[in-house]
Nucleic acid binder design. Structure first.
Lengths: 207, 207
DNA sequence: AATAACTTGCACACCGGTGTGCATGTTATT
DNA sequence: AATAACATGCACACCGGTGTGCAAGTTATT
């Protein structure tokens, strides 16, 4: 009985796997309900070949969500500021920096059975936001007339809506970032002049 | 040749037509992609009978959108205030009053081929909001650092997001109304204390 | 009581999508 | 050059949904 050395996976196969994920992200951003067929041909593969890399549609989505949340979490991990307003502003800025991933993940929040996975991956971010909102409420800078829990959700949903809007309007990078920050601070409780000031300051620092 | 007086539509048939629309609104609010089957049985009819009242799924949606936008437009037709902030607050209050219709219509804004019809039906409201936002921007009460057109969209989307959130949280009537008003004024540019004040005043008047 | 209006249930064709089996190529690796 | 890994294209079964035709029932109206 001769030895049968188990040959390694071919390198181009792994490349194709990446191509599929990249194509899926790109296509799904345009149409969240895109078919496997659309994804496969966008990746330059046949539908049949795709099933050699992923067992199901959901598996692709799961992978995308995992990577997306990881990316976002990484971008936000080193974001912190003692001033709650500045903290929120920094979060907004960071989110715009990862807009491609943010939009994809945001779509999954409501839909399908990925909901749980998404929520789990986003939890650290939510915790940070919750903290900032609570601190700001205590100071009186942010609104304290509404439960922090609710304010957090308000800020979250506003941010997502504005991010989408910024993309739809085709705003340039600077305007978009500012818009997101300013809107988030607005629902959090700041007047537009104060929000502007914070946005300005943070923008200067980040540059 | 004897006369053949064309007999009138039966009264119960018209009732069933209404039942279908009512059921559709109810079911679609829970699941925007509910099947015709689900709607029919929610209305207490067979799927086949439903097709005796509407030629297609889309026809039902079109009717719902038409009624919804009409209802909303009616509720907002007599809303006006010289003070832009109060005006926006009143719009928010009115929208919460028609929450059932608002949510249904809001879902259709993005989706399918109804988009155009929805936009048309909502145009008067948008015009009123645009007016208020522009006036507020000129006064300096609302933010003037962003194009009015964009501010309008921000307010719109925030309002929708908050309305959904209020429903999801199961807030009581008063809290929900206040939340919507306060969030809308927040993105428009008011500080949370100012927004609170306006909400309070308007709430008092409306009562 | 007659009759037209309406409802029902069944069958059917159609659509777009998913996931699998299989035979046949093509290409990277050894 | 041999061979295992991969890709392709086809067929297939399956699913859930839409819209129609038709025969047989039920019910409001006259």
């Amino acid at each position: 009985m001769t030895e049968t050395p188990p040959r390694n996976r071919r390198r181009d196969a792994q490349q194709n796997r990446e191509a599929i994920l990249e194509a899926a992200a790109r296509v799904l951003r345009g149409d969240p309900e895109a078919s496997i067929d659309a994804i496969a041909s966008a990746a330059g593969l046949s539908r049949r070949a795709l099933y050699g890399h992923f067992p199901s549609r959901e598996a692709i989505l799961a992978e995308l969500v995992a990577r997306g949340t990881a990316r976002i979490a990484a971008a936000l991990s080193d974001v912190h500021d003692d001033d709650p307003a500045r903290h929120v502003a920094l979060i907004g800025t960071a989110l715009w920096g990862e807009i491609a991933h943010v939009r994809l993940v945001a779509q999954m929040i409501v839909r399908g059975p990925l909901e749980g996975a998404v929520a789990a991956g986003l939890e650290p971010i939510r915790a940070a936001l919750r903290d900032a909102v609570t601190r700001g409420g205590a100071t009186g800078v942010f609104r304290s007339d509404v439960e922090p829990r609710i304010v957090v959700r308000l800020v979250e949903e506003t941010a997502i809506a504005v991010l989408d809007e910024a993309v739809a309007e085709g705003l340039d990078d600077a305007s978009a970032r500012r818009l997101v920050v300013v809107a988030a601070l607005g629902v959090a409780g700041l007047s537009w002049r104060d929000a502007d000031e914070v946005a300005e300051a943070v923008d200067g620092d980040a540059r």
